[in-house]
Amino acid sequence: MSESEPTDERPANAGAGTDTNEKRNATTDTDTGTDGTEGTSKEETAAATDDRGARSAAETAQMDAAESLLAVRDLDAGYSDLRILYDVFLDVADGEYVTIVGPNGAGKSTVMKSVFGLTTYMGGSITFAGTDITGRSPEDIIHRGIGYVPQNDNVFTSLSVAENLAMGAYILEDVPEEALREVYERFPILDERREQKAGTMSGGQRQMLAMGRALMLEPDLLLLDEPSAGLAPDLVEEMFDKIDEINEAGTAILMVEQNAKEALRRCDRGYVFVQGHNRFVDSGQALLEDEEVRREFLGG
């Protein structure tokens, strides 16, 4: 991990103001190990310490980075001029179920979008199955075995269920019969409504359709952005069960979730992000039991 590159040498972002400075200070503290000497407030010092804590855990995790299916290193990214992510790292092993949790604006979705090449790249690396995929087109990334389910507007509303699924396999010559059958088996509701327009379906059904579409290419890694957002409570449970099933069938999952407790209960490993920085990383269970994580991010 190339920590030698100090963050504060990069130009400050327009509009980010003091907020950015604060964050940069926190990172610098960690980088240099001068525990909070530059920080002036108690909060900053605390943040810096925690950041370092996260790193040491991550460094352990990175020992076997060669085995990672997805490896994000020192990623800086954002949207045009606005920087959102600061030296973010993240690993997903083959078949692993990883969740990213954290407060609003932590950059959770941005990490995911960055993997898919949908943000402005500002530094660092993203490797998938040993290949650097930074700056590749979504089409190419899909080809390599990553599926992505965005949070909003994730189905083609004017297309039927069957057409939506067929579009999921656009890069293939023909619709893969086997994969299609599996999707219909996994989500029987889609089978029943093949000809229905996606726009007339409920939120939960759309979410299933969006997942089904991403599964059409049988990806090695599935990126799920807030799969439970906007779903009725009884559907949330069902959705998480489906994700478990997909994971058990061998697909690695990288999921961003607001429903942090449930997500951490189910995943193998969890990352806590705060303001575009890594804060904690550990097994889902350990994070759930961690006093600080509970108090700050899981509402006690």
Partner: peptide, 10 residues
């Protein structure tokens, strides 16, 4: 229908 989604769908 949705150009952004079309792009991430490949």
């Amino acid at each position: 229908d949705n150009e952004d989604l079309a792009r991430v769908t490949g």
